[in-house]
């Protein structure tokens, strides 16, 4: 369990009170890529029941607070992830599932896969395991909830602080993917 949010940007005062509510009702938007998505249904249903903590799946980024990246990300899908992340509203957190988001996992040497997710979007919590089991996911959620309560899970603030750095990393990778329609075709 590697927590990457920095300490100095943490929330203070009234925000902390609100954090209790944010912690107790996290709405999750899972970007089901790779093999992590399979672990989520067991955590939702009878045995582990994440709804106990008020965590539930949501259909659109506008309403979600939590973005789960559940596996490796190719460059093209990274573009979608970035847009979805930007469409989410503050305060928002990102959990990276499995080693693919940490260091590219077993696809570390493939030309299409990105290795470190945290270079491109701020990851608050990564749960290691080549696909973490539901118990690991539950403890991950617990740790994230504690971090939120303590006001340390502030990835979204970090993203805003050093936005150019993230953008530079993203463009360096995304430059290689041509858009489906060139802007000229669209405008006519």
């Amino acid at each position: 369990m590697i927590q990457t949010s920095t300490k100095d940007l943490h929330d203070s005062g009234f925000e902390k009170v609100l954090n209790f509510f944010r912690k107790r009702s996290m709405w999750m938007l899972h970007y089901c890529t790779g093999c992590g998505a399979m672990e989520l249904p067991p955590t939702m249903t009878t045995r582990w029941d994440m709804e106990r903590f008020g965590i539930g799946p949501m259909a659109t980024p506008r309403q979600a607070d939590l973005l789960l990246i559940t596996g490796y990300l190719s460059i093209k899908s990274l573009k979608r992830v970035i847009r979805t992340y930007e469409q989410m509203q503050d305060p928002k957190w990102v959990i990276g599932f499995g080693s693919c988001t940490i260091n590219g996992g077993i696809y570390y040497d493939s030309y299409t896969v990105i290795n470190r997710l945290s270079d491109y979007i701020p990851v608050d919590l990564t749960i290691e395991g080549c696909m973490p089991r539901p118990e690991a996911i539950m403890t991950g959620f617990q740790t994230l909830m504690d971090a939120i309560q303590k006001g340390e899970a502030v990835g979204y603030k970090k993203y805003k602080e050093n936005y150019e750095w993230y953008k530079k990393n993203q463009d360096s990778v995304l430059g290689r993917t041509e858009p489906v329609f060139t802007s000229s075709e669209v405008k006519k």
Binding site: P61, K79, R80, V81, R83, T84, P179, V180, F181, S183, E185, V186
Partner: peptide
Amino acid sequence: GQDPEEFG
């Protein structure tokens, strides 16, 4: 998640 301009 799809960028409208790119998507045409």
